[in-house]
Design a binder for these strands. Sequence first.
DNA 1: TAAGTACTGGTTTTT
DNA 2: CCAGTACTTA
Length: 803
Amino acid sequence: MTGTPTSDAHGSDQITSDSATPVIVDWPTSGIPGGGQTASGHLLDGLNPQQRQAVEYRGKALLIVAGAGSGKTRVLTHRIAALIENREAWPSQILAITFTNKAAAEMRERVEELLGGRTEGMWISTFHSACVRILRREAENLGLSKNFTIYDSSDSRVLLKRIIKRNDADMYGFTPANAAAKISKLKNELADADSYARNANMSDPNEVAFVEIFRDYQRELLRASAFDFDDLIAQTVYLFRAFPQVAARYQKKFRHVLVDEYQDTNHAQYALIREFTRAPEADGFLPGTDEGASLTVVGDSDQSIYAFRGADIRNIVEFERDFTGATVILLEQNYRSTQNILSAANAVIANNFDRKDKKLWTDIGDGEKIIGFTGYSGHDEAQFVADEIEKLHSDGVAYGDIAVFYRTNAQTRALEEIFVRSALPYKIMGGTKFYERAEIKDAFAYLTAVMNPADELAVRRIINTPKRGIGPATVTQLASFAENAETTLRDALREASTLGFGPKVTRAISDVSAVLDEASALADQGKVSEVLTTLMQKSGLIDSLRMSRDPQDEARAENIDELVAVTKEFERNNPDGTLIDFLTEVSLVAAADDLDDASGTVSLMTLHTAKGLEYDTVFLTGVEEDLLPHRMSANEPGGPSEERRLFYVGITRARKRLFLSLAMTRAQYGETAVAMPSRYLQEIPAELIEWRQSPGSVNSRGGTQSRALNARRWGAGSAGGSGTDARALPRAEKKEWPNKVTNMVRDNGDLELVAGDRIRHSDFGEGRVQNVTGAGTKRVAHVQFDTAGAKKLLIKIAPIEKL
DNA sequence: TAAGTACTGGTTTTT
DNA sequence: CCAGTACTTA
């Protein structure tokens, strides 16, 4: 222990309170390569020479260029474990930063496994969580509330919408979405309204309007004591720069900083890393003798897919220049995929110019060929995916080892419809749907209003939810009263009786105010779930949903019950957790629950979400122009290259089997449009793909002769040959394809089916029921169709009739 | 003020 | 196709 008065004065005991960790000035962080090699011996077992080097290297800066599947997480976790095991660092001196919550959770788990616990005090988190932690801890030193709210992008847009309207800036073509994008971009560059204004052409009214919006936006955030996602990073950087003694505490604490997915860091994140690894300044009491922390970054510029969000590929390309004396280690051996899959990936990515040539290789053999399929429509494609999954499953492949990828979330609709019909268990990953539902956001707004009364956005959201007769006019009056009295909207509610509203309105306002006060008192004693239930009951929200005659409101009430269950779960996991902790977690960890219950189900996700994951079998769907590359990025500089990397990321997720599929027509905005095969498809050597149905053999009018030939040729080789070929003829006669599943019979009610029944299905024609399994609404009919092969159908919603 | 209707326009990826 | 919006009416 340094035990100096200074560290106490600055509360550094707070930082290290989780253990008796000394803030050691002369801790041996570097220059002792191999110190205690024996101790980490088992940590080197099974590593190849490059991986081993990456684990053992000790120096100020290390860049590990890790190709897809080359074991980077393994290297990173082993490196951390070795540092601890060799007593080169305490757990609390480690800061490991990942890009997603999922990656952080996985890393923690694996380090824990290697060390048998002993990760107490280690910071393994995302950029955003780490920054929130620091900002909450330091907020009060800076005159900010530590109860600040974190605005997600939709909150930002709501706020911007009001500002734009107020400023009449829509005249200049500003929308909440484009203003938010522009502001986000600037914040990622560590620019603020003033610095932007200095460089902007202020004779352009457009620019003036924007600067105005930016300023107002930031002012409103401050007034509400709120940070948006980008602020979390940028404000932490500002904090460190403005208060070197605060920065020094963290610089002394963290001796080893490790950053995953370094290619996806933006400028603000880069600056933050620089701050963390800077040598701490003398703080007036202690000399600034310490060296900066050692930095390890892992990345692969071929997997940079977040440039659209400000990720700066130069951060990784210029790493050696930025950090003098840096060492670079290259990991090229792939332990994940078959050679066929890697060859396809290598061939595709080779088309990106200005990249360092890098070739993934494996010694596990060629494996199966990539399978290609072209459907008539998105539904046809989805049916293919479902059929193949069923086939694999009956061959013993677990659903949990299968994933389906797509470029845009809109593509899930067709997949979902077919999967539900086919009774395939699936889970959509990363779709933060639950937390985006209106009723859930309402519930959060109540909690937020309790935690941070200054948050006007939250108060506005709940003030008339449920409807209590407080209309926009009343809200505007309240807000302008607050503005004039230089107080908050929340406080204005308390003054309602003095503001001359009608008795009914006044009463309604005071009631809301009282409910918030009551909950606030409760919040001081902990128990998030009690705060929530109180709010939901006394505000009348839950009752209004239960009483409603809108059948959907029943489900909404259930969602709120579900949220209460989430808070209880939170209390179990965090006995000391406060309301602040809960709200922080949910605003930052929208999709972390994906980890646990995804087993036993097929995983559906976007290509972006897929990064960092791997599956035995991968279906990469919608490999079409305008989708991949997406039409929005096709014309942007660097767009097609980034989309190619996205494709590359998708391909390299597959361990054993890769399916590439596309459709000739794709439904969008309710209309069907003709789709073209993606340009990237032809970058894959033809001999690597076995086409079940190639793009050339299908045209948009339906089946063709060549298609039939083709289908027979490939169909003979594939197991069963059930679906695809046989459907060619009946389908070709149809004028329209079944791309509007929603319009069909959705509810067969209690249609009774037993083995032996004949049925007719709108797509598959006639067939005989073999078997019925499941119960209630989940009854599934196993049907042998005359022409379309065997299918599983969810009886309740399948478009079928009994004959 | 609230509820209901007609209409628009927008649609990439995410912490 | 959908959500969100503007406009009507009670």
